[in-house]
Structure formats: C-alpha cells, structure tokens
Design a protein around this nucleic acid. Structure first.
Lengths: 147, 147
DNA sequence: ACCTGTTATGATACGTTATATCATATCTAT
DNA sequence: ATAGATATGATATAACGTATCATAACAGGT
C-alpha cells in the first residue's frame, strides 16, 4: 500500500509526495513476530503480501540498517536474522541458537568480551566486530525430549 | 577408490581408518597455500585446473569432511574457509580476521570458552558448537598504515 | 523559488554460495 | 557372489546477496 501526503502551498498549489514507505519498521515487525532466525527471503515473502513488487535489495537495505543500529542481529552461522530483545548493548551479545526449536537468545557477557580483549591485547589485533554464536539445545528442548 | 590404513595395537586388536580421498587432500592443499579466507568456489576454480569437470558438491563435501575433522575452519561470518594451523584443538578456536589484509589467525582461548560455559551453565543451554570470530585489523596492517 | 549536491528508494539483472537428487561405483561383511 | 552401507560423480536448482542505474526526496545556500 502506498499513501500520499498532500502539500498545500501558500499560493494554493498542491503537490503529491509519496510517503517514504517505512520498510525498516515492517521488516522489524516481521522479525519480532518470530523467536527464531528468519532469512532475508522469508522476510521478503511476508512483505510481498502487502507489496508484491518489493525486491531483495529493499529487504537487505533495511536489514543492514537495522543491524547497524543494533535493532536486529545477523546470525552469521545461519545467514539469517533475529530481532534484538534488549536494545542497545554496550558490546556484542552472545547468541545461543537452539538447533531443535530454532529459538535464539541473546546474552550480555562482559566476561566473555573481556576474555576476548585479553587475546587481542596480547596479539595486537584490533577488533571492531565480534561474532559469538553458540549452537546446541535449549533447556526446554532438553527437558521435552528423551535423550 | 577408498583406501584403508590398518592400525595394530599392543593388545593385537586392529582398527581400520578411512584414508582421506584425493579431493580432500587437494582441497586442503589449496587452503594451505593461503593465509586468508578462501571461498568454496575459489577452491573449485583452482581444482578445475586439474580436473575441469569437478563440481561444487565435491568441493563442499571435502570442505565439510575436513571441517568435521578440524583440519579446516569455516569462517561463518565470511562464508569461506581457512586451513587449521594447529591441528587438534581441545575446544573451539577464536578466529581473528584482518579486514585489511585478509589474514586469519586462530587462538586457543580456554578463558573465553570457560566464560561461555558459565553462561550456558546458568541458562541451561547445552552448546555443541561455538562460533567465535573477531573482525578488525591485524598488527602489521595497523603498523603499516597511517591511521 | 531555484539550483545543487547528497542520500534514500525502486527496479532489473546478475553474481555467489550451497544443496537436493539420483545414478554409479566401491567397500565390508557374510 | 551378494547385500547393505558409504562415497563419488553429475546435473540441476535453491538460497543468499549485491552491482548498477534511474528516479525521488531532502537540505542548504542564493
């Protein structure tokens, strides 16, 4: 759906402006509906319900912008995305991914980050981005299944 | 062709171990020529020099097998691969990736792993695979460039 | 209001990464 | 030898991501 805003100028003339359709908001909404990883193309599929003409670059632009602002996390080991739960971290989160149910949790783990800093301190590597992802089984899946 | 190696133990028992296929060896050789990340299709390109008919699944099978045996690391954040330097780790390595020169280093960091265990201990998540990748700038690139 | 440079969006096409599938070949055990 | 399991070859296609160019919106100076 595309909505228009009518601008009326001093001289009485009018002008239609396409409202910047806020894909960012809609992409984020799709991710928030999910407790697990969602691929860019799954997002695309959902958004096509409203606008069949939306193309991959639109989704990727939104995802990248949201990721830069910390509102979504990219799951590097799955090529997928998840909405941030606790906004605005001081540092990179640890993400746990349940390979059974797909649920993703994020943890603030200063001790992990500081242990990583120790390494980089010793080696001279200057880190600008940290990817920390754990695969395994969440507690509910472990309890639920006989293993 | 599959060849086997027979191990004979003190007690006289024997064990057969599958020997790596030719492709495994060749894929590994390509990765070892490089100090940085190599994509599966770059490997494919190099192997096509010897056998123009080699197809993607062959390369991916070799890469997956090598990764399972710890001989290569998959760089999840780059969709690429790198040869292990120190074989047979006790636990997942920390991989540092220089975004300038592409060089990848691997570190054993028990403190990082144990900090991660603390999290999983508290939350009940059982982790079977850890992905820990640092992006940034290595010390030589930092020294080399005016920043 | 007009020009101008910058940034965002739309649209098309294509590039890159990875796997499903099925056929064939090889090994192991009996 | 034959059967079951495993590995390999080959084709096709799925899934993920981006380059590029055109158009539109915006902000600042005049």
């Amino acid at each position: 759906m595309i909505r228009y805003i009518i601008s009326i100028y001093h001289d009485g003339s009018m002008d239609k402006h396409k409202q910047p359709s806020d894909w960012h908001t809609k992409v984020l909404a799709v991710l928030r509906k999910n407790s697990g990883a969602v691929s860019a193309y799954e997002v695309l599929g959902e958004l096509r319900v409203f606008n069949p003409k939306i193309a991959p670059p639109t989704v990727y632009r939104a995802l990248n912008a949201l990721a830069e602002r910390g509102e979504v996390h990219r799951l590097e080991s799955m090529n997928a995305y998840v909405a941030s739960r606790s906004l605005k971290h001081q540092h990179a989160p640890v993400l746990s991914i349940c390979d059974d149910c797909g649920r993703v949790e994020e943890y603030l783990a200063p001790q992990v980050i500081s242990a990583l800093s120790d390494i980089t301190g010793q080696t001279g590597f200057t880190s600008t981005r940290q990817v920390i992802e754990l695969h395994g089984r969440c507690i509910s899946c472990r309890d639920r299944v006989t293993s």
